[in-house]
Amino acid sequence: MNSMYFTEEHNLFRESLKDFLNKEVVPNIEEWEKTGTIDKSIWKKFGDMGFLGISYPETYGGLNLDMFYMVILLEELQKINSGGFAAAVWAHMYLAMTHLNAEGDEAIKQNYLEPSISGDKLGCLCITEPFGGSDVAGMRTTAVKDGDTYVINGSKTFITNGVYSDYLVVAAKTTPEIGNKGISIFVIDRETPGVSATKLDKLGWRASDTGEIAFDNVRIPVSNLMGEENKGFSYIVQHFGLERLIMGVNAHARAEYALDYAKQYMSERMAFGKSIDNFQALRHKLSDLYTEMEFCKEFNYSVAYKLNKGHYVVKEATMSKLKSTQMADDVIYHCLQFLGGYGYMEDYPMARLLRDSRLGPIGGGTSEILREIIAKIVIDGKDYKPVT
């Protein structure tokens, strides 16, 4: 393990996490992949082990550990070969909970963040809309103030944990006439009247519940506003760097898993009297793929290091997601090819890996959008700044 970034304590944490996943999660993955429903008892088990709070303050039951504990969690989740289960975990921990921690007041932190860390509540983040896609500023969901309440109307889609979560962190326009400067962030209980969800049928990430959510005159207290009114877009952009780095780390980890599996398979698969890892064409292709993966992994570690030091890494994190997700798709495509006909069989891991990986260049900002963000930075000289 890279000692530049990982200490002995990190390595012990990794081993503890591996043991937990192998005992509590891996035996259930096939069932969850088939049903599309994760047993809710697993969240309490994660909470009891402290895994859900590794990045959060001790005041609310967290461990307040450095960024590389998050990296370890993401890497090991990818290596159980269920992108859907992994997404359910990190969408709760680093999409929904990030906003609770950063913008929630003390009451919200006690009522939502603390039980999220303990595993008693599961959250989701609702930004993307059916007509908006990556165009966050173009959202149509509104929150109209009415006395001591807000009335929310609109819809969201492609929401991970969107069906079975206990609460929703929702972006809505409080002042629509000023565009992206009129967006605010709210927390809404699942059981609030007017909230409904429809489960979506996906190519991959089969274990996770991805939902389309409707808000029909949903009335919530003013106290459910997080942060300042009309500052929501700034909050969302502020956290994009973390989300993109997460997806970059996910990508290099699943690519590494695919390569390690393919390498082992090739050492055992015989053809023409020798194992296929002796054929030059395959050896050299595997070497190229490992090189691409290692480049992305090292870059992602350096971005995590900068983020851990408090640097604003919007450019680097955007590059991380763009390059790493493309790399993972390419690696897994070729690893499936290394397995020949077996790669196409559901009894082997590559078919699911291929499906799950394909969401990488789409979710959390498409590759096309990311290229335009990078172009604005490196060509137009745009300087994205953190919220102050």
Rank of each mutant, 00 (worst) to 15 (best):
N2K: 12
E9C: 08
F20L: 06
E30D: 14
I38V: 11
D39E: 12
D39Y: 09
W43S: 07
K44Q: 15
G47K: 04
D48E: 15
P57E: 08
F68S: 00
L74G: 01
E76T: 08
L77R: 01
S82Y: 00
A91V: 04
M93R: 02
G123P: 00
T128K: 06
E129C: 10
S134G: 10
V136R: 00
K156M: 10
K156T: 09
F158P: 02
V163G: 03
Y164E: 14
S165G: 05
A171P: 03
T174F: 02
E177S: 12
K181A: 12
S184H: 04
I185E: 01
I185L: 02
F186A: 01
E191W: 07
S196A: 11
K199Q: 10
A207W: 04
D209H: 15
I213Y: 07
A214Y: 10
A214C: 09
S223P: 01
L225V: 02
M226S: 05
E229S: 11
K231V: 08
I236V: 11
G241M: 03
G248H: 04
L259V: 08
D260Q: 15
A262P: 07
Q264K: 13
R269A: 08
R269G: 03
A271D: 15
A281L: 15
S287L: 09
K297G: 02
E298Y: 11
E298V: 09
G310W: 00
V313Q: 11
E316R: 06
K323T: 12
S324Y: 01
Q326G: 14
M327I: 08
M327S: 06
I332G: 09
L336I: 09
G341P: 01
Y344K: 13
Y344G: 05
M345E: 12
L353T: 06
G360H: 05
P361Q: 05
G365T: 01
L370C: 03
E372P: 00
D380G: 06
P386F: 03
T388G: 10
